[in-house]
Simulated assay, not measured.
Amino acid sequence: MPNTPDKPRAYRIAPRYLANADADGSETVRPLLDAGWGPSRDDEGNTFVTAPDLRARLAHLPESDGRTLWKISANPDAFAPPEWLVTFDNQTPPEVVADFTTALADAYTRGPSAYLGGDGQTVGVDTCLQLLDAEWSFDPATPFLTYQSPDRLVRLHIRDNPVRHEAEMAGDTERWLFEVGPPGQVWYATASSRLPEHLLQALTSAVTDPSPVHRSMRRIDLDHLPAEATATPTAPTPIEVARIRAATARSVSSASSRQPSLTAPPTPPAPIGASSATTPRRSPL
């Protein structure tokens, strides 16, 4: 029997923060577009989505150097340097980015005070307390303030020493660093010091949400999932169901046509024939 190619099929991957990044990224920018933000592209193929007042921007950077794929920032006015910066690397599941952009779009519609904050400073105490309430543990063995999820697959590192704002906006350092996945299969998200508390909480929820997501994968791709992830095949798609039914119908029709007649027909038979019935990593924009 000849070898047949391994066809992709749908799986439900849980938790979602262990799913791969190979999924449709268009939903990551949809909340911003719905809020009136405008898209553009550079000559290299990178995509930018900018707020109407030019105070906030998302950049999708598949052609840039390094691992950072998404940069999201906001500033007090169109000519000011960014007030805060959030980044996601190229292995981040796009559903995580979409949850954060949904929160940002909602904040944007409420005005600058919602997405820039009052004095521009965030303490993060409420966020850390929420993690402890969710049974996260504090890890004293790192040079940072580190919180670890119960499954030990998500770690939040917080720099408690002074950090220069210019260095954060350049991407040279960060106040908040999420490290997600087992060793060798880690992806990262970062946030700078002045991200408003409610957006930091939205980012934390997006990163740590264990809800399953769907992926179209080949069997060989499953070998690259972290061992801690579960991959459950979903029900056959409507196209697969139609193909199975069509193949079954052809098989039954063929078997029936090969059966010998047991009695002579009383009248000349009508012509017999086969049934003729027929069944009637990419840019996010």
Rank of each mutant, 00 (worst) to 15 (best):
R41C: 10
A105K: 00
V154A: 08
W84H: 03
R155G: 04
H60N: 13
L156C: 00
S149I: 05
D119P: 01
D89M: 09
D65G: 14
D24W: 09
W37P: 02
A51I: 05
A103D: 01
D42Q: 10
G118M: 00
E83P: 02
T109F: 00
P82F: 06
W136I: 04
S73F: 07
T146G: 01
D119G: 10
L131V: 04
A35W: 04
I72A: 08
A105Y: 07
D89A: 11
V123M: 08
E27V: 12
Y115G: 03
A98S: 13
K71T: 14
G118P: 01
N20M: 12
D34Q: 14
F48R: 11
G25L: 05
L54A: 15
T28M: 13
F79D: 14
G25S: 14
P140D: 13
P82Y: 01
N46Q: 10
V97D: 00
L54W: 13
E95G: 15
S73C: 04
S26K: 07
R155N: 06
D24E: 10
V49M: 01
L69Q: 12
F79I: 13
L129W: 08
P81Y: 05
D42E: 10
R67N: 14
P140E: 11
D99R: 15
F144D: 09
A107Q: 01
V96H: 07
D77P: 00
V125Y: 05
G111M: 01
A107D: 03
T122K: 00
E63D: 12
P150Q: 02
A107K: 02
D106A: 14
A35K: 04
A35V: 06
W37L: 02
H157D: 04
T109M: 03
D42T: 10
L132Y: 09
A56M: 05
F138M: 13
P31K: 02
V154R: 03
L153Y: 01
G36H: 08
V96N: 10
A98V: 09
L54K: 15
A21S: 14
